[in-house]
Computed example of a mutant assay.
Amino acid sequence: MKITAITAWQVDLPLKEGRYSWSNGNFVEVFDATVVAIETDAGITGYAECCPLGSAYLPSYARGVRSGLEELAPKLIGQDPTNLGEINRVMDAALRGHPYIKAPLDIACWDILGKQAGMPVYKLLGGAAQEKVALYRAISQEEPEKMAGKIAGYSAEGYTKFQLKVGGNADDDIARIRACREILKPSDILVADANTGWTRAEAARVVAAVSDLDVYIEQPCPTYEECVSIRRRTARPFVLDEVITGPADLVRGLSEDAMDIINLKISKVGGLTKARLMRDLCVASGIPMTIEDTWGGDIVTATIAHLARSTPEEFCFSATDFNSYGTREIATGAPKRVDGFMTASDAPGLGVVPLIDTFGAPVLHIT
């Protein structure tokens, strides 16, 4: 089997709530996603999606996905998409870094492999380790009372895990954490996610002020070293996200006892091939993961669901159903939230069919 063409479309993903806000005043109102199709001479087409969280979150941005695809796609024409190790070696040799650009190409090849094998991707990633995956809900940064009110609403939809967007003024963040923890059930999980937004001094103040609460502290500061400094000052469970960008960072964090949990974002690490490697290393090391991505719609949500479903429940801290945040359906067959859970399709590949007729003209077509 050989790759014969790679096509990409730009797709807008508006939000139901109108705006998603996080640390340092960052926000997005309409997400800019790229949907990728890889065609083969066997008549099998694989699909994937990549959607950076704006341009101020990680070293990634929406137009960079498409620019990078223009660079990488010609190198993959003629390659065997089911030879995933070689696909990744070719991409890494052709373009240093930029894992988020490589991710949709890798994922589309997994979709092809599943379709060729007649198996869902989760079986190729290790098989079903859980039948349904617990979801968390991200709570956009607002005033403490508004955030607490949203948590109450989402609790009614079945969510029991909540990721609170903090990383602003330390006093305001302390109030946000306290207001939200107060309305939750004792069994509910609350994560205070600063998204690198605090200085070390601010983070030290916050973790001291909430030391009496049942709350997880996530990515308080911009650098690994600053985060480890804060970890040493708190007994709260500690999550690392933005600074765990690949296997080497994960190995360092494990060796230095830098975290209790990681957020494993599939596009941040370069796709399912490398995410699976990191997932298996976490499982072997006893580290739970939130399995997710930077953002996305139906195809990203399906990809998350397959990796999460193949992860043992005790190591799958939570996952994300991004398609429930938006107003636009971009594929049929995607997972749907039911009482705070989702599951991956049993159909071959990712199990989704993109609604290509709604995308408009392609922005890239390489043969």
Rank of each mutant, 00 (worst) to 15 (best):
R66C: 14
S140P: 03
A175N: 13
S324K: 10
A117I: 01
E202N: 15
G114W: 12
R309I: 02
I189T: 15
T160P: 00
E226N: 13
T7E: 14
L95P: 04
W110R: 02
T45V: 10
V283D: 08
E157N: 06
I262E: 07
E39M: 08
R200D: 06
Y100H: 13
V35R: 05
N24I: 08
L76H: 11
T301A: 09
A258N: 11
T358L: 12
A208G: 14
Q116L: 13
D298L: 02
D92A: 13
V30K: 14
I299D: 04
R176E: 12
A305K: 09
E29V: 05
R279A: 10
L350E: 01
Q219I: 02
S310Y: 07
V28I: 15
D257Q: 14
L213K: 02
Y159G: 03
G68K: 06
V166K: 02
C180Q: 09
R63C: 09
L184S: 12
C227M: 07
E17W: 05
V36F: 03
R337L: 15
L58C: 11
P237M: 03
R181N: 12
G270N: 05
G43E: 02
A344F: 10
T320P: 04
D214T: 14
G149Y: 00
S267L: 11
D172C: 03
L190Y: 05
D241W: 04
Y122M: 03
D260T: 00
Y216L: 15
P348I: 02
F238T: 05
G25S: 10
L240D: 09
Q163N: 10
C316P: 01
A93R: 15
V363F: 09
S318V: 02
T358H: 12
G167N: 03
G296D: 08
Q116I: 08
P120M: 03
N88Q: 11
S345W: 09
Q219V: 04
G333I: 11
F31M: 15
T303M: 12
A331L: 08
N263K: 13
A235P: 00
Q219P: 06
D298S: 11
H306C: 07
D111F: 01
S140E: 05
E256P: 06
A235Y: 05
K2R: 15
A361T: 08
A148F: 07
D171R: 12
D257W: 08
M289R: 10
A319R: 03
R137T: 00
A208C: 08
Y47S: 01
R236K: 15
P362M: 07
T40G: 07
A209L: 04
F317P: 00
D12N: 14
Y122L: 03
I304S: 02
A302V: 03
S67I: 06
D214H: 13
I230P: 00
A258W: 12
L254Y: 03
S187N: 13
I3K: 04
R279I: 09
T294Y: 00
G167M: 02
D41I: 13
L250M: 04
P222S: 11
S345T: 11
I101G: 05
A194D: 04
T196W: 10
T40H: 05
I151H: 04
Q141H: 12
I6M: 08
G118S: 06
A305E: 10
G296I: 06
L240V: 06
A62Q: 11
I183D: 07
A94L: 09
T34S: 15
M289D: 02
A148T: 08
K123L: 10
